[in-house]
Design a binder for these strands. Sequence first.
DNA 1: ACGGCTGTGACT
DNA 2: TAGTCACAG
Length: 669
Amino acid sequence: MPVARPETSDARVIAHVDMDCFYVQVEQRKQPELRGLPTAVVQYNEWQGGALIAVSYEARSCGVKRSMRGEEAKAACPEIQLVQVPVARGKADLNTYRSAGSEVVSILAQSGKCERASIDEVYLDLTDAAESMLADAPPEGLESIDEEALKSHILGMSREDGDDFKESVRDWICRKDADRRDKLLGCGIIIVAELRKQVLKETEFSCSAGIAHNKMLAKLASGMNKPAQQTVVPYAAVEELLSSLPIKKMKQLGGKLGTSLQTDLGIDTVSDLLQFSETKLQEHYGINTGTWLWNIARGISGEEVQGRLLPKSHGSGKTFPGPRALRSLSNVQHWLNQLSEELYERLSSDLEQNKRIASTLTLHASAFRSKDSDSQKKFPSKSCPLRYGVTKIQEDAFNLFQAALREYMGPFGTKPQGNKKETWRITGLSVSASKIVDIPSGTSSIMRYFQSQSTIPSSSESGCPQEHVAMTPSASESCSEQKSAETEAAMPNKDISITDTSPDLDNSYGNMDMVPEKDASCQSSEAKEFPTQSGTQTKTIGRKINNSKEKNRGMPSIVDIFKNYNATPQSQQETREDSTVSLTSNRGNLSSSTNHSSEVNQEVEDRRETEWGYKVGEIDQSVFDELPYEIQREFRSFLRPNKRPNAGKSKGDGSASSSIAHYFSPLKR
DNA sequence: ACGGCTGTGACT
DNA sequence: TAGTCACAG
């Protein structure tokens, strides 16, 4: 489902930078004695020596390939060094690679628009830099050209023996009568060579790069000469580069679409594709994909480099293949707790380092049913508003899972009808956080936010909250969920999950295989604490985001809630009588950081109206709780400017110098 | 139902 | 929209 983008009229200079066997390099930097040795990184896996996820070039020349097992690799190359991916909470932990990737990005982002395409790949739009260089210091006037730049591969240029080719490269870069597009690429060559040297110097990582007029060609080029080299695609070389290329090698054609082109239309190479008219392709694949295919066959791709240095989502997942498939609710809960912990940890660092908050939590799982009927049925994904706090994420993830499981099991979820119980197996679990927005740093930012947000006209009246039907993660959940919630309230939350489950021994939890029936007597802790209908907030967030013309800064969801309070403050107050807690009383609650279960209705101390007309005392606890702690704190000090925000705390945390991480510790709720 | 884990983007 | 699917590495 690629979509066609028109090529911009002016020539761009685009680079694709690809780290060479990145995970291996990260491990070799950590253990320099491994440098130069055949090395591979294996993922924690006792089974057949683990799966290779990165292979050094020395090992590749021994015949070691990715997607070999550790044992196979050992057989192919006995001297290979196998390094294990770090493990945390019983799963692979890629954080060291992520932050190594960030090191690289922060260097590459200096010279132009930069897009972090994956953990080890970056696109750069160097058009401006190249044009500046062409105007101010064109290569033809340079005394000498960078050695690294001279080692470039220039497609279409024969690379004869000896040092001669460097002379040819120099000539190509400096040619006075060159096409302007080629001159720009020449500048790109020099810039990228410089950047790669800088990356090597500052991170010790080598990389390869492709330099061309668009992303597609740059990506293609970066893979042509590895490791530690760069390849240029002059305009004149595009046709030859593409014509012989198997379509499966083109980005986006490595899967089903590529296969369909081969089997349905007999297209194997791009030159085959060139024979098809645009309308013919559109007939087969629709207007968008058809046009896109026609364009890429000609090296045309207007896809822009997104100026994005940070990921748009975070996820934590694990598979449980074959015999390891999870078969009890408690084991699922155990793993969801682990995954949620990791996710929360990453959300915390994102907030601290980048001042960003995520607003949607999604659960994905894969499953099968042994006594099939339709064994192929997909396990549904579910999402809900993301509430900051480890245990909140854990609870919500588990609730989402149970909701999805009921849907998955359908009528079989209730009770064994006969003796043959239809039983589920979970083969994969993941939790992810998305819809991440920036928050500005600095004091009273929150106020600026809400002010800017509150000026946006609301196109649709988003209905009174009491109309909303309780959605997935909330009420009517299982007893086991409540058990865990109570346990948690009573003890520091780090221990919760481990006490009642252990990994890999599902069978010891025999009686929890079935989804428990809905039991009215079994009230969910979620329902008690957070009776608002969280599902509807997600909608309002989305609507707000769509309505705002500028980029979505701030917390639209809370603004939307404020609007609701403006509209129907009284009914709000009534419908959630049990739960409405004033911010001021909440302050004491947060300070003690223990029993949030005291959702006793307290008198509102401070009901001064704000400029938006809602009463701060009526802000629902759950809305407040969904904000990151830092924001809560800032918001609180905004609402009560004359008092110190966290006077009740034991540590001196009111000071400006204390780190966000402190407030954002796993014990905070 | 061994390629695990993670991420993006389009479609509906 | 939330959920699904495809794709990449």
